[in-house]
Design a protein around this nucleic acid. Structure first.
Lengths: 147, 147
DNA sequence: CACAATGTCTACCAATTTAGTGTACATTTG
DNA sequence: CAAATGTACACTAAATTGGTAGACATTGTG
């Protein structure tokens, strides 16, 4: 099961995608729109910013905005960042690999092969799902930021 | 990521499968063979017994044994029992369903559909993997229990 | 019947993770 | 300068994870 943090992050990113190209969005607006605890959301947005997905503008009329185009961010990136890995076992993880505890020979381990297939399918599905797939983008009246 | 408890349960069940039809197995032997903390393993075996997978024989010459044939137990059952659900979101879970937090309309929610596909694939793979697939069964000299 | 070897039961516990909150501060605009 | 914002960092409460302790019940053997 994904953690609330991961789910909140997806919701926040989805919301920011829907406002892409339209200037900054208040944390409080995201919190209200997606029904998220605002202080917790602050931490999450900060993490997303540190990871390069978001930009921010402090002070009055400030807020957050997506740096990349929504079609350039996918769910695998978000899930992996907050969950640490997409795999269900360390031995089939790309990002958090550790030797298998189930077997002597990882090349022939049946458990590993099953969980590897699951990991690969999951990764592929999440990777294929872009933020742009989650919202109706309106690119007609997009504006430039003055940062 | 699966919890240690779930992973230990799979290891214990795998070990008991390899001894299927050959009488009881000491907790301490399972712990030694699979390198598991014995007191924690006791709890896990007890849970597996309460769930109907294992039988036990207390007292001298006692131990645990698989009740069902290894081909009648699959990984989905074990994972679901210890993890609570196989899904990554409640809204796509069969056993722990809760309404979706991501959308107004679950029928058209893209996030839900992606995670539903992942859940279905995962379930199918785990369900197809029987304990008998994990070990070399030797059914030639199986014996009957005298319980 | 005594006793050793085993599983059983109930409780407890420490460490870690999760899901936040508190407080003070820095920055920007008007 | 004041108000509106994001930033930093510490703190914490609750839940979960990963166990451990100790007394007890059951069984086989001598």
């Amino acid at each position: 099961m994904l953690s609330k943090k991961t789910r909140y992050a997806i919701l926040a990113m989805k919301h920011l995608s829907s406002k892409y190209g339209k200037g900054v969005v208040l944390i409080s607006d995201i919190a209200k729109a997606e029904n998220l605890p605002i202080r917790f959301l602050e931490n999450i947005l900060l993490e997303l910013k540190k990871n390069g997905y978001l930009g921010s503008k402090p002070g009055k009329n400030g807020g957050y905005y997506l740096i990349k185009h929504p079609k350039e961010i996918n769910l695998a990136q978000i899930v992996r960042y907050f969950e640490g890995t997409i795999a269900l076992l360390y031995c089939v993880s790309e990002k958090a690999y550790q030797p298998c505890e189930f077997c002597m020979d990882e090349r022939t381990c049946k458990i590993k092969s099953v969980f590897k297939e699951i990991r690969n399918y999951t990764y592929q599905k999440l990777e294929q799902t872009k933020l742009s797939d989650l919202v109706d983008l309106d690119e007609s009246d997009s504006i430039m930021y003055s940062i």
